[in-house]
Amino acid sequence: MTDSGDLDALFDGKSLDGHSIDELSDYLDRGRTPADPAIDSSPGCQIALAGLARLRAMSETLVETDAAAEPARDDSWVSGILDNIELEAHAGRDIPIQHSAPAARLVITEGAVRGLIRAAGDSVGGILIGRCRLDGDVTVPGEAIGVRIDASVFFGERIPEIVARVREAIYTELLRHTELNFTSIDVTIHDVHHVRSSPEEVAE
């Protein structure tokens, strides 16, 4: 507890060796750099800075506490959002499908191909495909196309092995469904996902 006499002294600067609370707040905003020896050596300022830092830390966790205290949202709240997103937003480029009829304009969207790649990669198990990019001009038949995939694997999986299986699965599906000329499939593992695992499980 503080009594208001002490606090008044804070704001008129008497207990802060001539510094103001706002000055100290700015100092905190700057990460206390460059170091100000006058502030750092003042016991009054140090107490005030500690209080400001606590207040800031508390503010930062406030919304997380608010969120945790909220009753779980029902599914209608989620579907209210999902029902209103534009599916075409991520369709990407149109990839041609050949047909002998002159009036035929057949395409598969880049979004559909990325969906295929995700499904094929995920089906291997122990890995989740993330962002996926098709390099090269997919709108021109026969162009060399490279696939770049970002993925995360489950803790304990042997990465070279799983990457080989994923590349194989994706290549098979792409050949089956599309007419693109895939020349490379690069897989980057950005994260190893840890869930209730003990260290010896990787030591194989």
């Binding site: 009829a101 009036a103 395409v107 598969i108």
Partner: peptide, 13 residues
């Protein structure tokens, strides 16, 4: 007379 038949696959699976 036919100008175009456009078919677009938007999703697979």
């Amino acid at each position: 007379r036919l100008a175009e038949i456009a078919v677009r696959v938007g999703s697979v699976g």
